[in-house]
C-alpha cells in the first residue's frame, strides 16, 4: 500500500546526515593538512553512511515502481489509492507501521553489520603497520 514511504523517510534523514558529516570530514581534512595523517579517519563514516543511503533510496525507488504497477500509487491527488477512504487509510497506516518499519529496520540492521565487519577489517589491516612501528 505505502510501506515504501517509511524507508524513503529514513533515506531523507540519512542523506541529510551524510551530507553534514561529509562536509565536516572535509573541513577536518583541510584543518589537518600538513599534519601527520595519523589523526585522519581511515575510512570516513560518511562514506559508510552512503552505503545505507544507496540501499534505502534504491530499495524505495524499486518498491515504488511495484506500487505503481499494482495501482497503489497514482499520479493524481492523494497519490495513494488507499488514502481515499478512511477504512483503507487505517489499513494503510497499519501496513506502514508493520511492514514498512520492519523493512527500514532490516536494511539498517544489515548496514550496521556491514559497518562492524568493515571496521574490524580496517583495524586488522592497521595492526601489522602499528606492530612494525
Amino acid at each position: 500500500m505505502a510501506c515504501f514511504l517509511i524507508p524513503t523517510t529514513e533515506a531523507i534523514v540519512t542523506t541529510i546526515l551524510q551530507r553534514v558529516l561529509s562536509s565536516k570530514e572535509k573541513n577536518m581534512e583541510i584543518h589537518h593538512e600538513g599534519d601527520s595523517s595519523e589523526n585522519l579517519p581511515k575510512s570516513g563514516f560518511s562514506r559508510k553512511l552512503k552505503w545505507l543511503n544507496n540501499m534505502l533510496w534504491g530499495g524505495s525507488a524499486l518498491l515504488a515502481l511495484e506500487h505503481v504497477w499494482h495501482g497503489e500509487v497514482v499520479p493524481w491527488f492523494p497519490f495513494l489509492t488507499a488514502a481515499s477512504d478512511s477504512s483503507s487509510r487505517s489499513e494503510m497506516f497499519h501496513e506502514m507501521a508493520t511492514v514498512g518499519v520492519t523493512m527500514a529496520l532490516l536494511v539498517t540492521a544489515v548496514w550496521v553489520g556491514m559497518v562492524v565487519v568493515s571496521s574490524r577489517l580496517e583495524k586488522k589491516a592497521d595492526k601489522p603497520v602499528e606492530e612494525k612501528n
Partner: peptide, 11 residues
C-alpha cells in the same frame, strides 16, 4: 547496494 536494498525490503 540498490538491488540488495530492494531485495531486503521484498524479503
Amino acid at each position: 547496494l540498490m538491488y540488495w536494498g530492494a531485495s531486503l525490503m521484498w524479503m
